[in-house]
Amino acid sequence: MTGLDHEHSAAIDTAAEWLAKSSRDRIRRPIITELRERYGLSVAEACEVCREANLRRARAA
């Protein structure tokens, strides 16, 4: 994995952790927009974050 890939993986992991722990009621705007602005992600990366956060929530249940 290159340094750039590692940086993106870290951003996705950090964002997924935040999203999995955040209450959906507290997020007042579209989540893709929120993730892109908060973590500097592309649309595809923001979608990956949503997928990963959903998996984490399911494992925790």
Rank of each mutant, 00 (worst) to 15 (best):
A53G: 06
R57D: 03
R38V: 05
A58P: 00
T2A: 10
M1I: 15
G40Y: 01
A16D: 08
N54S: 13
E48D: 11
D13P: 00
A10M: 09
R56I: 05
L41Q: 02
T14Y: 04
R38H: 08
L55K: 12
L19I: 05
L35W: 04
T14C: 09
R57L: 12
L41P: 05
A60P: 01
L19K: 10
D13V: 07
R51H: 09
W18I: 01
D25R: 15
Y39S: 06
D5F: 08
P30K: 15
G3S: 09
R36D: 01
D5C: 02
A11W: 01
R28F: 09
S23L: 04
L55V: 06
A20F: 01
E52P: 00
D13T: 13
E7M: 06
A61S: 14
S23F: 07
R59C: 04
A60G: 01
T33Y: 09
D25K: 15
K21G: 10
V43N: 09
R57F: 02
R51G: 09
I31N: 05
A11V: 01
A53H: 07
L4M: 02
R59E: 12
I32E: 12
G3T: 10
A61K: 06
S23A: 11
E48F: 00
G3K: 14
A16V: 08
M1A: 13
D13C: 07
R36V: 03
L4S: 06
M1P: 08
